[in-house]
Design a protein around this nucleic acid. Structure first.
Length: 687
DNA sequence: GCCTTATCAGCCAC
DNA sequence: CGTGGCTGATAAGG
């Protein structure tokens, strides 16, 4: 951790990094209208211009990227009249890094001025909203799925970046509270949706959606309170003070009864002991009063259930569990001996399972009830530290075709050292911002992962520490080589053969698994595709992949946008076959709107610097959601004969209306064959 | 503008 | 080395 050597205080790019010091609540900034003389013009490539990198152009406040047309989002509206909000900044982020000093005083600017400036800013924002790029006023009021995903992506990308800066030694103590900072920027930039409060369904938010921060609920309009558990809303036509509850968050702070997935006994708010205050009786005010009114008016109340995230100590997961109604209320003595309000909420029947699924998984994990359709508790036979269940709830098939379980990539030929690698000299764990660590340097000066082991950005290449590095195994720069961390399930899908999903919720940026298999020179249809049925068990780095934007918006942290290319840079094409041996990745199906993407990773092992393909979560993925990635299409100049990847125009329509043919195991396998071979699954010796 | 709410993360002790 | 409790700083909405 802090080694106190003081050697690493040389900050080669302080000028750049210091810009972030100016990231403060934008509301504190006086709005300023763009002028020709006001600093360098904002660069923005036209959306339809050809991009050499193969990625679509990126506009900092644009809607979802990609070539798909987005219903509900009028691109022209964004691009034609777009004036970047950054142009309104009175203090353009330092162009020369001279603002390094004195930042602390400027952050704590006078409260009075702050409020005034805030109003002025809001005014400018509202009146200029016709020019506001990204999310229009009406879209801010009423969202849709694309908007909700867009807002969540932008928030999380920014949060990850700020979190990375927070972790960095050179910025310790300067960037703090990355969640709040990211939230603040989103709020003040107007990057949010469903701001208009409503009873019942929130457009674009689906039952079962998961969130990892309370602020995410605010940004998509599911629950507008940043902290309070009850969100009240004035009723039309009612007198002032007459409010009903539209949503509640049950997150374990009170003694709620959450045993029954269809019933929630919710405790009102207030009365908690805090600081020098002792516990007291709850009062029938605010949220409590609103819930009481909701009981009488019988309005729909959205319920979000929050609890500990098992993957991240101390943090929480929130699940949107759909619509409930308050059935009764009463007062009872709480643990402190004070009066607590209790509200019994009952879930409206016929809604998709959400929290119920979590409860079920919990029982599977505790062994209290067995998984229906379980064929094998662990198809890796112990090769991974976490078991992988094999399940079929659809038909009688007893498992996929035989393969040998292999947990990593296998190069059959010795691999040429691409560059001399001596490993880093860090003694414990590599620390971001340590300019002496060559692994950090190779990654552009930053640790590619947050302290939680979450990928910050997609990059042309990520260099992890290898066996020659002196740092310990728990170094944060070894995320993809220490095995996957979620409980997977290989399951039979209805129409796509076998698929992969997880029992655990997955945060955006989480390492899913690597693509394991044997490296081959070229595709031998017979050997690797099996009967010419396609190359479903082959991964190729040189296919054409649908472009998408995943990284943060550099402008929001005061960086040059040129620095964040998401284009891969792979020295030579890599082809991996998992036909005969592989890991769970071979079961991941294709999707045109995937929730997983791949990222090239390099690290040294046995004196060889090897290329690996690692999968990461593109967005938050609820439990039991099928994991999919973009299989890509063959380059047109290659004579690849592939039934399953026709070189058709890949319009979203094609993907959505006609599901692809089964990608895995089109021909069912005899059960005896699998049973026989499952015992033969090899435990790889590589770890 | 002040109050309520309780989150999030840093910190310390074990 | 992970866990749990405590606390400070904090934002939105009323």
């Amino acid at each position: 951790m802090e080694e106190g050597t003081g050697v690493n205080t040389v900050l080669p790019n302080l000028g750049d990094k210091s810009r972030v010091l100016d990231v403060k609540p934008l509301r504190t900034l006086v709005p300023q209208f763009p002028e020709a003389s006001n600093g360098p013009p904002f660069f923005c490539a036209p959306p339809n211009a050809p991009f050499p990198s193969g990625f679509s152009s990126f506009f900092p406040f644009s809607g979802p990227q990609g070539s798909q047309s987005i219903p509900g989002l009028n691109k022209n509206e964004f691009y034609s009249t777009a004036v970047p909000i950054r142009s309104f900044r009175a203090e353009p982020l330092a162009s020369d890094g001279q603002n390094v000093h004195g930042h602390k005083s400027s952050v704590s600017s006078s409260v009075k001025k702050k409020a005034k400036k805030r109003k002025a800013f809001d005014f400018a924002f509202t009146t200029l909203s016709n020019f506001n790029p990204g999310i229009s006023l009406s879209e801010r009021d009423d969202g849709n799925r694309e908007l909700v995903e867009n807002v969540l992506w932008r928030f999380d990308a920014l949060r990850r970046k700020l979190s990375q800066m927070e972790d960095s030694t050179e910025l310790t103590g300067i960037i703090k509270r990355s969640v709040l900072k990211a939230s603040n920027i989103m709020m003040s930039e107007g990057v949010r949706t469903n701001v208009r409060k409503r009873i019942g369904v929130v457009p674009g938010v689906e039952i079962g959606d998961i969130f990892f921060f309370r602020f995410e609920l605010c940004l998509v309009g599911l629950h507008a309170q940043a902290m309070a558990g009850i969100d009240p809303m004035p009723m039309k036509g009612d007198l002032e003070g007459e409010r009903v509850a539209v949503s509640i968050v049950s997150s374990g702070g009170y003694d709620d009864d959450v045993e029954d997935p269809d019933v929630l006994v919710y405790t009102g708010h207030g009365g908690n002991a805090s600081g020098d205050k002792e516990a007291s009786d709850q009062k029938l005010v605010r949220g409590n009063l609103a819930l009481e009114r909701s009981l009488h008016r019988a309005n729909e109340v959205r319920v979000i259930r929050g609890f500990q995230d098992s993957a991240h100590q101390g943090s929480k997961v929130y699940v949107y569990d759909g619509i409930y109604k308050v059935q009764e209320s009463w007062v009872e003595k709480g643990k402190s001996g004070c009066n607590m309000f209790k509200y019994k909420l009952v879930r409206i029947p016929g809604q998709k399972d959400a929290f119920a699924t979590w409860k079920l998984i919990q029982k599977w994990k505790e062994g209290l009830s067995s998984r229906d359709g379980l064929i094998l508790p662990d198809l890796t036979s112990g090769a991974e530290s976490i078991p992988v269940s094999l399940v079929n709830e659809v038909d009688d098939e007893k498992g996929p075709a035989h393969f040998t379980y292999l947990s990593t990539i296998k190069y059959s030929k010795p691999f040429k050292l691409l560059q001399p690698s001596f490993g880093c000299d860090c003694r414990e764990a590599c620390q971001a911002g340590n300019s002496n660590c060559c692994c950090i340097k190779r990654n552009g000066g930053d640790l590619p992962y947050t302290a939680h082991g979450i990928l910050v950005c997609r990059k042309p290449m990520i260099y992890e520490c290898g066996s020659l590095c002196h740092c310990l195994r728990n170094c944060k720069n070894r995320v993809t080589q220490t095995g996957f961390k979620v409980h997977f399930e290989v399951f039979k899908t209805k129409d796509r053969g076998w698929g992969l999903r997880s029992w655990d919720p997955i945060r955006a940026g989480t390492f899913i698994c690597e693509y394991a298999g044997e490296v081959i020179d070229k595709i031998n249809t017979r050997q690797d595709g099996g009967d010419g049925e396609g190359n479903e068990f082959v991964f190729q780095t040189n296919r054409v992949y649908e472009s998408f934007k995943w990284n943060y918006e550099p402008e929001l942290v005061g960086e040059e946008s040129s620095d964040t290319t998401e284009d891969y840079d792979i020295p030579s094409p890599l082809i991996i076959s998992s036909k005969n041996s592989g890991n769970v990745a071979r079961f991941m199906n294709h999707s045109c709107s995937p929730n997983v993407f791949w990222q090239p990773i390099m690290y040294e092992h046995n004196n060889e610097v090897l290329l690996h393909v690692a999968f990461f979560a593109k967005r938050h993925i609820p439990p039991m959601t099928e994991l999919t990635y973009d299989y890509g299409v063959p380059r047109s100049d290659e004579g690849e004969n592939n039934k399953f990847h026709p070189s058709l125009p890949r319009s979203p329509l094609f993907c959505r209306s006609s599901p692809r043919p089964p990608v895995h195991d089109p021909t069912p396998l005899l059960s005896s064959s699998f049973r026989h071979t499952s015992k033969l699954n090899k435990v790889p010796s590589s770890r």
